[in-house]
């Protein structure tokens, strides 16, 4: 069956506290942090971007399982912060893991769900035997305008999944998607920061699509929340994910391993699937995992996943790359000035 052959994550080591951002903009730090359920967010180093994050995640995936990179027939990188507007991130990743040149590649954008769209595409290509393995990546150095609510959560990180049919560590039993034209959040061509519809992003955007997509999956699979060991939802903040989980009947314990946002922030295209990676970090054979991503604009992709015996086999070495928990623990807190420099928010005229 088609599934996850291996996976790897990467999170830059720098963090800024929600309270520090609030200090600069005159917000009530502790209240904002509590309200969002987000206390720290990651930010990239001066020489990191979506491509370097994607490469590190892909290399982590390949470190865990010895597969020939030349067998990777497709690479899709989902992000809303590709370093180039025109010139694919995916080929730089391909070159950096020595998967080029016999492969297809493209960059994806669907707000925060471009990573799961990449997984679905590679599922199709591998299931139809067009390629042996596909590499699907969600990575971002998320943009949030200084002073905007997004700034409290927009974070940096990424995750890579190798998808294939050849003894996966986790079978992807089913996938289901729900899409509509809903302008809750966007970034116009050539502009540095996204804009959003404020509270409109909630009910008609996030909740409608995640709930509809998740119900679609329940129907397709003939399951209910209690049939799963773990669940992961797109997490722009902790509150949204907790609410949607509760509405669908999942317990706080089921979503706990995959709820990374409180000390990571929203890594946009990486957000839901870093949660999946964190869950795979601790999963055992037989565990069933429910995932629903969300991308503004808008749409959701759901997955029904069953962890296989391969995850504990000699062929797969979880310890060969850092877990999400380890990546989150490796951190350096910076102040707003350093954050602004790292994010290119200090404009130097040369």
């Amino acid at each position: 069956m088609v599934g996850i052959i291996t996976y790897g994550a990467y999170i830059p080591k720098y963090r800024i506290k929600t309270e520090e951002i609030a200090r600069v903009w005159g917000g009530d730090g502790p209240a904002i942090a509590r309200g969002l359920g987000v206390y720290e967010k990651s930010l990239p180093d001066m020489d990191e971007d979506t491509i370097t994050i994607a490469v590190e995640a892909a290399r982590a995936a390949l470190a865990r399982r010895s597969i020939d990179p030349q067998d990777i027939g497709a690479i899709y990188v989902g992000s809303e912060s590709h370093p180039y507007a025109v010139k694919p991130s995916a080929v730089t990743v391909g070159e950096a893991i020595m998967a080029t040149p016999i492969m297809t590649a493209a960059d994806y954008e669907f707000a925060c769900k471009a990573g799961t769209a990449a997984i679905q595409t590679t599922m199709g290509l591998t299931k139809s035997n067009m390629i042996k393995y596909g590499l699907a990546i969600g990575a971002d150095i998320a943009q949030g305008e200084p002073g905007d609510a997004l700034e409290y959560t927009a974070a940096a990180g990424g995750v890579a999944f190798v998808i294939g049919n050849d003894s996966p560590i986790a079978d992807i039993n089913l996938t289901a998607s729900y899409s509509s034209d809903t302008p809750d959040f966007w970034r116009r061509e050539g502009l540095p920061f996204p804009r959003h519809g404020g509270r409109f992003t909630g009910e008609p955007g996030y909740f409608k699509h995640i709930l509809a997509g998740s119900h679609l999956m329940f129907e397709k699979a003939g399951t209910k929340a209690s049939d799963y060991d773990y669940a992961i939802f797109h997490q722009p903040n902790a509150k949204f994910a907790q609410n949607v989980a509760k509405t669908l009947g999942f317990t706080p314990e089921q979503i706990k391993p995959g709820l990374c946002v409180p000390y990571l922030g929203n890594t946009y295209s990486g957000a839901s699937i870093i949660g999946l990676a964190a869950t795979l970090d601790i999963a055992k054979p037989g565990d069933r995992i429910f995932v629903t991503s969300y991308g503004s604009g808008a749409g959701s992709d759901s997955f029904d996943i069953t962890v296989t015996d391969m995850i504990e086999s000699e062929e797969f070495c979880r310890d060969a790359a850092p877990t999400v928990e380890q990546l989150l623990a490796t951190k350096k807190i910076v102040d707003y000035a350093v954050y602004a420099k790292h994010k290119g928010k200090i404009v130097v005229m040369r």
């Binding site: 020489d47 971007d49 590190e56």
Partner: peptide, 12 residues
């Protein structure tokens, strides 16, 4: 001096 190091992928 003598610190063990490993490669990473970065912007040059």
């Amino acid at each position: 001096i003598g610190m063990p190091v490993k490669r990473v992928f970065r912007r040059l």
